[in-house]
């Protein structure tokens, strides 16, 4: 095959890419009791996917991505509690709010690189967390935001006690986000992000507006993270300060590294394995489960750089 065709073929849809969706649909029918956990996993996959766009593709090393998750969660939560319980407009609002925060913070944060950038992303999250804490009259502060009454989707599908609607709702949103992200990373824009990750100096030297490209993807990623946060708020009808916590920022990085960064599907594998492991380990060893997560991560980083997907890649190539 001609090299051009080979390269174009790499961007074409492959059957294996259907696998996560088949599993997600199968889960709905087989593990009906686990759907609330399933929804949580789908939400974290979306969050990890948004992180992959900036961390995996554009090479922006951030430890503050929960800022946008949290802004989305609070935006959707406050909207539902005080304005309207209509879920889809809540999602759109959350995406817009997170995008604005992403764009504004990106203007400052993306002027830096490396450790400085890392610290600034942390600082943004810390600022927002403290603001949410202080603004208790609207966010509920440390008690959390309650009193949301989410109306049926399209006025038809009521959120039920077993989490069936919530699961399908999250799945549909994740699917759309994935379609969008997939198209994005395979576009010329997506390729130029990889170029920036691989060699920023050369991207400048070939006339690429590097800063603008980074700001664009940072804003898009923030919006997607905001949608993930909004899904959490709407499906649990509660928003606590932990959505803006440093721990969530760290965990999502761990999940993504676990699955493999810059691969689009690392988010699915990483968040899936991590959340299930966490659930199972917490049952087996309620006090000690973080130890095993830590051990698993150490082993993975030592012996399987590129995460689970990187490992599979290497085994297949042999």
């Amino acid at each position: 095959m001609h090299p051009i065709d080979t390269l174009l073929a790499r961007h074409r849809f492959r059957a294996i890419e259907l696998l996560p969706w088949l599993i997600a649909v199968a889960v709905y029918f087989v593990f009906g009791d686990y759907l609330p956990l399933g929804s949580q996993i789908l939400i974290m996959i979306l969050f990890a996917l948004s992180l992959d766009l900036v961390l995996g593709y554009a090479g922006i090393v951030t430890l503050g991505h929960s800022a946008f998750f949290g802004v989305g969660a609070y935006a959707a939560g406050i909207y539902a509690a005080h304005v309207s319980g209509e879920p889809l407009s809540g999602l759109v609002l959350a995406a817009c709010a997170a995008a604005v925060v992403g764009w504004l913070s990106g203007l400052v944060v993306l002027r830096t690189t490396g450790l400085t950038l890392l610290m600034l992303t942390l600082a943004v999250t810390a600022l927002l967390a403290e603001a949410a804490n202080k603004a208790g009259f609207i966010t509920g502060g440390a008690d959390g935001l309650q009193g949301m009454d989410i109306r049926p989707i399209f006025g038809l599908f009521r959120f039920d006690l077993f989490g069936r609607t919530a699961y399908l709702y999250c799945l549909a949103v994740l699917f759309l986000a994935w379609l969008f992200a997939r198209r994005l990373v395979h576009s010329s824009f997506g390729r130029s992000l990889i170029g920036i990750r691989e060699n920023t100096a050369r991207m400048h030297a070939i006339g690429s507006p590097v800063r603008r490209r980074l700001l664009t993807i940072y804003t898009i990623s923030a919006a997607l993270a905001g949608v993930a946060g909004a899904l959490l708020a709407q499906t649990t009808q509660f928003v606590g300060l932990t959505v803006l916590g440093f721990q969530r920022s760290g965990e999502i990085v761990i999940m993504l590294v676990f699955g493999g960064i810059g691969r689009l599907y690392g988010a699915f594998v990483g968040a899936g394995i991590y959340m299930i492991a966490q659930d199972q380990l917490a049952k087996l060893e309620p006090a000690f489960w973080y130890f095993w997560i830590g051990l698993l991560l150490v082993l993975l980083v030592m012996f399987a750089r590129g995460g689970v997907l990187g490992l599979i890649d290497r085994i297949l190539r042999r």
């Binding site: 010329s188 130029s192 006339g207």
Partner: peptide
């Protein structure tokens, strides 16, 4: 990457 930037489609999503 360079040819794409030259063609002005580097930011094409």
């Amino acid at each position: 990457l360079a040819v794409g930037e030259h063609h002005g489609i580097g930011g094409d999503m």
